[in-house]
Amino acid sequence: ARERLAHKVAVIERALAARGCGREPARVLAALGGLELAAMAGGFLAAAAHRLPAVVDGFIASVAALVAVRLCPAAREYLVFGHRSAEPGHAHALEALEATPLLALDMRLGEGSGAALAFPLLTAACAMLRDMATFGDAGVTR
Rank of each mutant, 00 (worst) to 15 (best):
L94N: 01
S62R: 13
H90F: 12
G89P: 04
L97W: 07
L66S: 07
H90I: 06
A68F: 13
A99P: 04
A68S: 08
F119Q: 05
A91F: 09
G82Q: 07
A68E: 06
F59C: 13
E77A: 15
R70T: 10
P101Y: 07
V63E: 03
A96M: 12
A68C: 04
A75R: 12
A61C: 14
A65C: 14
G114C: 05
A104P: 07
M107C: 02
A93N: 08
V63S: 01
F59K: 09
L117E: 05
V56R: 13
P88E: 12
P120K: 06
L103P: 06
G82R: 11
V80Q: 05
P101H: 05
E77K: 15
A64M: 08
R108W: 05
C72Q: 14
H83G: 01
A74F: 12
S62C: 14
G114Y: 13
H92Y: 15
P101M: 00
F59L: 10
L66W: 15
E98K: 15
G110M: 10
V56S: 04
G114D: 08
E95Y: 12
H90L: 05
G114K: 11
E111N: 00
L79A: 08
P88Y: 14
V63T: 07
T100Q: 04
G114Q: 05
F59T: 13
A68H: 11
